[in-house]
Amino acid sequence: MKRLNKLLFATIAFFLFAQSAFLKANGPPIHGDTAFVVGIEGAGISSFYQEMRMAKLLQNGSEITDPLNREMRVRMIPLMLPYEAIPNRLLIGLSVPYLDKRMEITVGNQRKVFTNRGMGDATLFSKVQFYQKDRRGGTTRMTGKLGLKVPTGKEDARDESGALLAPGLQLGSGSWDIPIGVVITHLYQLWGINTNLVYQINNESNGFEKGDMFRYDLSGSIRLLPIVYEEYPSPQLNLIAELNGTLAAKDRNHDITDPNTGGHTLLFSPGLQFIGGRDWLINISYQLPIVQNLNGSQLGLNQTWTVGFLLYLR
C-alpha cells in the first residue's frame, strides 16, 4: 500500500512538474497514442520488443499463495507499418505480432512447461483526424480510430499430451475483433497531454469469446536534453510517463461466463525516448501495475519491459 501511495505521488508530481516546467518538443507516447497523423509523409516502420512477466496469483485483487506456483512470460515483437494515405487526414496501417508464450506450473512434484511461439493475429488499423485547432505554440487535435483484428494467429495449439492449450497461451483468438476509439492530443510548448481511449469489441470463435476491453492511456513527456532546443533537428532525450489502464469484461466459454477473467488494471509506465534525427527514434519503458482489481482468481502482472523504435521511410 505504501508503494502504491509513493507511485501515485510520483505520478502526480511528474504531471505537475510537466505542466510547470518546459514541456517543449514533445515526442510521441510509447504505449499510448497521439492524435497526430502527420510526420510520416509516406510510410514508416515501427517495432518493439516487449517482455511481460506474470507470477503472482491474485484473489479479488489481493495476492495469495499459488499452490501451482504458476509463472507466465510473454514476449512480443510486433511489426507495424503505418502509411499516411491522405496528408494530415488519414493514416492506415498493418500490425503483425510475433509472440513467444511460456507457462510454468507445478503439478505434484513436477514442474511442467507449456510453450507456444509464432505469428499472432494481424490488425488493420486506421486513424482519421476530425478536429484540428492550431495556435502559436500549441495545438489541439482529435483523431478517430478504427481497426480490424484478423484471426491470422494459430488458435488450436496443443501440448505434448494432445490437450488444447488455454486461450491465454494461444497465439490467436480465432475471432474477428473491432477496436474503435478516439485520441485527444492537447499540446502547448509549456505542457501537453495525450489521451487515448479505445473500446475493443471481441467476438466469439469456436465457442470462446474473450470479454470486451476498454483501454485508456494518459501520457506526458519532459525534454531532458537539450536544455534549449535551438534548431530542428537536434538529438533529443525525453522522459515519458504514462498511465495505461485496461478494463476487461469476463470471458465466455460455450455460453458460460468465466468468473476468473476480466477486471481492471492500471499500469504506471515511465520511459526514456531518444530522438536521434528527423526520422527515427528509440525508446525504452518499464511498466509496473499500480492497480490490479482482477475478478476471481487470476495471475497478476509483475512487470513489463519494452524496447522499441520508429523509423520514417523516405
Binding site: A25, G27, P28, E41, Q132, R136, S234, I275, R278
Partner: peptide, 16 residues
Amino acid sequence: VKGLTCPFCAYGLEKR
C-alpha cells in the same frame, strides 16, 4: 507555423 509543438512532427512539414 501555428500548431508546431513537436520536432518529430516537423519531418513531414520539412519534406513538403
